[in-house]
Computed example of a mutant assay.
Amino acid sequence: IMPAVDFRVPGGLSWDELSAALRIILASGKAVGLEVAIYNPRLDVDGSAGRGLADVMAVALGTAAPA
């Protein structure tokens, strides 16, 4: 689902799967950090991949992403 990366691999997570995984990981109380890697804004011409990523992260972290 993330076209804005330098090396795409088929069979990755959907937005819903990523959201569910993050919720489970963060709810465990064992997460001590979070890193977003490989997102390349030059490959995100219309910004939709970045917005999708920001939306998923905002939901997982329990906040509202800016509109």
Score class of each variant (00 low, 15 high):
I1R: 12
I1Y: 15
P3R: 14
P3T: 08
V5C: 06
V5M: 08
D6I: 05
F7L: 12
F7G: 11
F7C: 10
F7Q: 12
F7N: 11
R8G: 11
R8W: 11
R8L: 09
P10C: 06
L13N: 01
L13Q: 01
L13P: 03
L13D: 08
S14L: 01
S14C: 07
S14I: 03
W15S: 04
W15Q: 04
D16W: 01
D16A: 09
E17C: 02
E17F: 01
E17P: 04
L18D: 00
L18N: 02
S19E: 10
A21H: 08
A21P: 00
A21W: 02
L22F: 12
L22M: 14
R23G: 02
R23W: 03
I24H: 08
I25M: 02
I25N: 02
I25F: 00
I25C: 04
L26Y: 09
A27F: 05
A27C: 07
A27M: 01
G29N: 05
G29D: 07
G29V: 02
K30Y: 02
A31P: 05
V32P: 00
V32N: 00
G33V: 01
L34I: 07
L34T: 08
E35Y: 11
E35T: 13
E35S: 12
V36P: 09
A37L: 10
A37T: 10
A37P: 00
I38R: 10
I38M: 11
Y39Q: 02
Y39V: 00
P41L: 01
R42N: 15
R42L: 09
G47R: 10
G47I: 08
G47N: 11
S48F: 12
S48Q: 15
S48W: 11
A49R: 06
A49H: 06
A49F: 06
A49S: 14
R51T: 10
G52C: 00
L53H: 01
A54T: 15
M57E: 01
V59L: 13
A60T: 08
A60P: 07
A60D: 07
L61T: 03
L61N: 05
L61F: 08
L61H: 05
T63C: 11
T63H: 14
T63E: 15
A64G: 14
A64W: 11
A65W: 06
A65N: 13
P66L: 14
